[in-house]
């Protein structure tokens, strides 16, 4: 039972992701977290976090997140352009004997500061967003918020996930949509990935994108088919063909849609939905245990 011991020592992290927005990542992660005895819900969709609208957390705490941007000392700068040539993102230009820094293009790698032969560059803090923490019944709700206009939410996600060290509760990571850097950062430490898919051809395409990502990251995963209708489901067909684990199906249901549109947590409002999400969570837990057992 080594796998069990691993789970006791660290929090179990379940990431919920999908290839596009609006498939049901937040519906699923919010409701699964609400059915867990005790849980941490993390909204990594920092460009448009909305999980907090459902949880309406109390006792809010907020912490600003900043990144480091290079700043040049004109007196020390010799105009050698080592930094300009080094920057892969072209965040620096040297014009009229003056270094220009494009903050929003800079990825804060710090390379220019390290390489400057004249030590003319230093770093200054720039606030790009914040992390909010509050409580909603048995769930600790943590939200990452990226300020409008900022280039990358990765530093905020790093902070969100770093703060989890030492936590023992089950963690639900509500990922940003897609399969770009920001999603990679969100699932990096996840123990299990839940892929949410819509019953359309477009849904299949999006599912395939995140499928490639979790395969690349060698993460165990399962699929939840959302918005299921009576008619043919291309996403389900895709799962069967590829022999993917289907964790469950959520019906395209007016009542569920209404509750969700009113920013209510369906699992808390209606016993029927509690059962849906609770059994989904149990199935996920079983899969994780199975995965941990074969990997240990």
């Amino acid at each position: 039972m080594q796998g069990f011991i691993i789970m006791e020592e660290n929090s179990l992290k379940i990431a919920v992701l999908s290839g596009k927005g609006g498939t049901g990542k937040t519906l699923l992660s919010v409701n699964m977290a609400a059915t867990a005895k005790k849980a941490i819900y993390i909204d990594c969709d920092v460009e448009e976090p909305n999980g907090h609208l459902f949880f309406k957390p109390q006792n809010m705490m907020s912490e600003e997140i900043s990144i480091k941007i290079p700043i040049a000392d004109e007196k020390l700068c010799s105009g050698c352009r080592v930094c300009v040539d080094f920057c892969k993102f072209n965040a620096l230009a040297y014009i009229n004997n003056k270094l220009i820094v494009f903050d929003e293009v800079c990825h804060s790698c710090g390379g220019c500061v390290l390489l400057c032969p004249n030590r003319a560059l230093s770093e200054e803090e720039k606030i790009i967003g914040k992390v909010q923490k509050g409580v909603s019944e048995s769930v600790t709700v943590i939200t990452g918020i990226l300020n409008t206009g900022e280039a990358s939410g990765v530093p905020i996600i790093k902070k969100l996930l770093k703060d989890l060290e030492g936590e023992k509760e089950i963690v639900f990571i509500d990922c940003p949509p897609g399969s770009a850097c920001i999603v990679m950062e969100s699932i990096k430490d996840a123990d299990y990935c839940v892929l949410v898919a819509e019953p359309t051809l477009f849904g299949v395409h999006n599912l395939n994108m995140v499928l490639e990502l979790v395969t690349l990251f060698k993460k165990p995963y399962g699929v939840v088919l959302n918005k299921c209708l009576e008619s043919e489901n291309p996403a389900e067909k895709f799962c069967i063909e590829k022999e993917l684990i289907i964790l469950g199906k959520i019906p395209f249901d007016l009542e569920l849609g209404t509750l969700n549109s009113n920013a209510l947590i369906s699992a808390r409002e209606n016993k029927k939905y509690y059962e849906v999400f609770s059994s989904l969570l149990q199935l996920v837990m079983k899969e994780v245990e199975h995965e941990t057992a074969i990997n240990s």
């Binding site: 920057c87 993102f89 072209n90 620096l92 230009a93 040297y94 014009i95 293009v105």
Partner: peptide, 10 residues
């Protein structure tokens, strides 16, 4: 990858 305008302008 990014910042093409800045580099081209340089």
């Amino acid at each position: 990858q990014g910042g093409a305008g800045i580099k081209a302008a340089q």
